[in-house]
Nucleic acid binder design. Structure first.
Length: 574
RNA sequence: GCGUUCGUAGCUCAACUGGAUAGAGCGCCUGACUUCGGAUCAGGAGGUUGAGGGUUCAAAUCCUUCCGGGCGCACCA
């Protein structure tokens, strides 16, 4: 339900039915015609390029065609009250009072679903997937929030979405992590001094994990790492994952499913998927050539199993086995994605950090090979968050333990601000995050601007002893919006279009931008009342024009729907 | 070198899968508070959309060649 789509289909039908009158022979391009929001200064509700598109394919003068279409539409569409031909042949359309009222009533009857679409796709969104070797740092935040909000957005449109976290609990980094915990446990139990070596993790949280393990498992043996490794790995991972889950929870993020890489290996899924690909001839034994542009000292030419990802658009084929014959991270990841496909998701989405851009082609190739190109993997990359401290760039290193954690951030700024701020930028642009600025000048955060608009609306309802669930009826004879209200309506009508395009392009940042603009219109209207009493909503504790309530009610509905998608709270009082 | 991504006002960014006079915020300048909650509003200055070429009624957007920044380029994860 989107007024642009509704009217567009009506217009298209009228054009088809009257093509002889309009002398149109070629209507192939009719689906490229659009109905949009006209630039503000024109003061119209809808705008179409229909004459420009059709004039081209029919070799006609676009202005003449535009004026013929204008006459036709005025006759045939009840809700079109006024149409003007502008520029090279745009049609600007104004809706009648009845048109406006009927569209408003549709919004009131939908309320919390206003703006949504009825799609029914299945999505698997993998995001965060931070290494389970410690708590989350600020850099993880962006992808985490992006993934969460994208999920909300797709759910809002009626899709089935599973939010998934891939636990990379296998491989060398985990071994180092477990060893670090092991040594910290020995430090506690045997007063053995912890000596930091190259591969070990230094952070204090390792001590915490170790002491928790000792506390909960009095009989834990730490005599030699080999004997207790599996047990210790299990406990250490439990410790680090609970740190991560807690961070996520405080950011308002809850995953539906945690998928363990170790389980994948244990269940022998990698062997199975490699055999499957071998049977399709996408995997063979072979030699890889050394990477270009860089001389590698350790390079060995060894025969190994190779995935022919270059057949699916990758730059080169990729190794599935290490020198020692064990599976690569990539091989495991293929098995993981094969599992996702087996779980019957039509759409796979991976949210990645910028440092994994180079990985996209090979994993997409794998998904294409596994699904015979039927399942699409969409990888969205979140660019770096550049941290500033005291106005200077602040470098982080997880290894040295020198990083700003999500906890540090949450101690200073609330969840709502973090979420809004991380989204208030397109994901493929770097984001400046000035830690001190955010701490000090909280008021400058746009999230307050939107929340404040909502709080103001609530204050009006409070004064009038009404609430946002009350039914409001419109008297369409008396319905006469002023210029602020016209602006509000147009913006409100745009909402479904914003949701649609944000969901279609996987660009949730459009939502905060839109909400900010909507709030601007409201604040502007509100302030006009201070200047000119004609524009005040309330006089002597009573509403002046009942219909003015309609517009702020509409704004409240849309802000609420939008903030719900963003996962940002909306206080009624601030 | 290859891949990928970005380049828009002084700064940070928008611009609805090619649309009309390219829009916001911050900063700067001028104004509005015994306030339907000023955490706000009104107005002003600020642009050859990195550069050149091409495609067409129409280009910030598509193609191409340069220039410049980020990220990646292991059998790591």
């Amino acid at each position: 339900m989107n007024i642009f789509e509704n009217y567009l289909s009506k217009v298209n039908k009228i054009i088809l039915d009257n093509k002889n009158i309009l002398k149109l022979e070629n209507l192939e391009q009719l689906n490229n015609v659009n109905l949009e929001v006209p630039p503000e200064h024109f003061n119209f509700d809808l705008s179409s390029n229909i004459a420009l598109i059709l004039a081209k394919t029919n070799k006609m003068n676009s202005n003449n065609l535009a004026s013929n279409i204008k006459d036709l539409l005025l006759k045939k569409v009840d809700h079109f009250e006024k149409i003007e031909v502008a520029g090279p042949g745009f049609l600007n359309i104004k809706l009648s009072k009845e048109g406006l009222v009927s569209n408003i009533n549709i919004i009131f009857s939908n309320k919390e679903t206003y703006g949504s679409k009825k799609s029914a796709e299945t999505y698997n969104i993998e995001f965060v997937s931070a290494n389970p070797t410690g708590p989350m740092h600020v850099g993880h935040c962006r992808g985490a929030i992006f993934g969460d909000v994208l999920s909300n957005l797709l759910k809002f449109n009626g899709n089935k979405v599973v939010k998934e976290y891939y636990i990379n609990d296998y491989g060398n980094q985990i071994n180092s992590f477990v060893e670090s915990v092991y040594l910290r446990i020995r430090e506690i139990k045997f007063k053995e001094k912890f000596v930091l070596k190259e591969n070990l993790y230094p952070g204090d949280y390792i001590k915490e994990i170790a002491s928790n393990i000792v506390k909960d498992n009095e009989n834990i043996k730490a005599d030699n790492l080999k004997d207790c490794f599996e047990e210790l790995k299990r406990l250490s991972l439990k410790g680090s994952m609970s740190l991560i889950k807690d961070d996520l929870k405080q950011l308002g993020i809850v995953h539906d499913n945690f998928f363990s890489e170790t389980e994948l290996v244990k269940k022998d899924l990698v062997n199975k998927v490699v055999k499957q690909l071998q049977s399709k001839n996408y995997v063979e034994e072979g030699f890889l050539s050394p990477p270009k542009g860089e001389v590698l000292k350790n390079w060995k030419k060894i025969k190994r199993l190779v995935f022919k990802s270059s057949e699916f658009g990758d730059d080169t084929d990729r190794a599935l086995q290490k020198n020692d014959g064990s599976w690569t991270y990539f091989a495991n990841d293929i098995a993981y994605h094969s599992n996702k496909i087996e779980r019957k998701f039509n759409n796979l989405i991976n949210i990645l950090g910028a440092d994994h851009t180079g990985y996209i082609k090979r994993i997409s190739a794998a998904v294409a090979a596994l699904s015979n190109k039927k399942v699409k993997l969409n990888c969205k990359v979140c660019q770096l968050v550049k941290l500033y401290k005291n106005g200077k760039p602040f470098k982080m290193s997880k290894r040295s333990g020198d990083f700003i954690s999500v906890q540090d951030l949450l101690n200073e700024v609330n969840k709502d601000s973090i979420r809004f701020m991380m989204l208030n930028r397109s994901n493929d642009v770097e984001l400046d995050f000035d830690f001190d600025k955010v701490k000090e000048k909280t008021k400058d955060n746009p999230v307050y601007y939107v929340q404040y608009a909502y709080a103001r609306i609530n204050s009006i309802f409070r004064i009038l002893n009404k609430n946002l669930n009350d039914k409001i009826t419109i008297n369409s004879e008396k319905f006469l919006p002023n210029m602020y209200e016209e602006k509000i309506l147009r913006k409100i009508f745009e909402w479904p279009k914003i949701v649609d395009s944000a969901a279609y392009k996987f660009e949730p940042h459009k939502i905060p931008f839109y909400l900010y603009e909507l709030s601007t219109i409201f604040h502007s209207y509100w302030s006009k009342g201070n200047e000119d009493s004609k524009f005040r909503f309330i006089e002597d504790g009573k509403i002046k024009r009942l219909e003015s309530l309609v517009f702020i009610y509409l704004i409240a509905i849309v802000i609420k729907n939008g903030m719900n998608i963003l996962g940002v709270s909306l206080p009624e009082k601030m």
